[in-house]
């Protein structure tokens, strides 16, 4: 009964969506605001990666909101799991030698790679979100390999708050010295395809990288830890 109702519902939704999406021109050249972003992107921001320019500069306010959503979700998760005393019987098993050795070798390299990704976010593919998640997957490896591994929650939340404050602070500097919030005319723009270029974009993306990395590491730690004591 439930399946039949679901399939009928899906058919109706599917037909409706098909008739809607049939009007979208797939694979055709685009117009409108994307054209402006592509054409004037280098001239206005000097960052080679146009996706970074859009995420951090043209739609920077949007990104600030999304980072806030991430923070709220992590806070809600730790609030839900904070007083859960009923899962004491859950034990982490000892990992194999191969996993521990590989973690010891790979973890510093993963950290360096993540930092490289978010420092070069305006030049190559990558940026704060990617670099942060790569760093968080390194922390995840540590959790898998060592049974007694703990993160320092206080340090993580301090790092996270500092990164968030610096994001908002750079935006307010734009309000103070230029005409709008998060405006990209506080620092000199520099040359195209150089590391020190693109104004405040690399600074904001480094802050986002620290924030996302700390946030996701804390999230994994909250999920994997069993009780407050051990």
């Amino acid at each position: 009964m439930r399946k039949i109702v679901a399939i009928i519902f899906l058919t109706i939704v599917g037909l409706y969506m098909l008739s809607l999406f049939a009007q979208i021109p797939f694979g055709k050249p685009y117009k409108g605001v994307s054209e402006h972003y592509v054409e004037k992107g280098i001239e206005e921001n000097r960052g080679s990666n146009l996706v970074t320019s859009i995420v951090v500069n043209y739609r920077g306010f949007d990104t600030l909101g999304e980072v806030t959503v991430l923070f709220l979700a992590a806070t809600g998760l730790s609030f839900l799991l904070f007083s859960c005393k009923c899962l004491r019987e859950f034990k982490r098993i000892r990992s194999s030698l191969v996993l521990r050795t590989a973690t010891d070798t790979l973890f510093p390299l993963i950290l360096v790679f993540g930092a490289y990704i978010f420092i070069h976010g305006h030049l190559t593919p990558g940026g704060g979100f990617q670099g942060g998640s790569v760093i968080a997957s390194g922390v995840m490896l540590l959790f898998l390999a060592y049974r007694k591994f703990h993160v320092n929650h206080k340090a993580l939340s301090t790092l996270e708050s500092l990164a968030g404050i610096s994001f908002a602070g750079i935006g307010l500097l734009g309000l103070l010295y230029a005409k709008s919030f998060l405006a990209n005319s506080v620092l000199p723009l520099g040359q195209w395809n150089k590391l020190f270029s693109a104004g405040v974009i690399p600074l904001i993306y480094i802050a986002v990288g620290f924030k996302v990395g700390a946030e996701l590491s804390g999230l994994i730690a909250d999920m994997i830890s069993t009780t407050k004591e051990d």
């Binding site: 990666n49 593919p125 940026g127 998640s133 995840m140 898998l144 999920m223």
Partner: peptide, 23 residues
């Protein structure tokens, strides 16, 4: 879309799977 591919590989295949396995 190399940016999105990077994010999806690190998050979708790594972190999400771990969180599901823990649950």
């Amino acid at each position: 879309a190399p940016d999105v591919a990077m994010t999806e590989a690190a998050i979708g295949a790594g972190i999400t799977t771990l969180i599901f396995v823990i649950t």
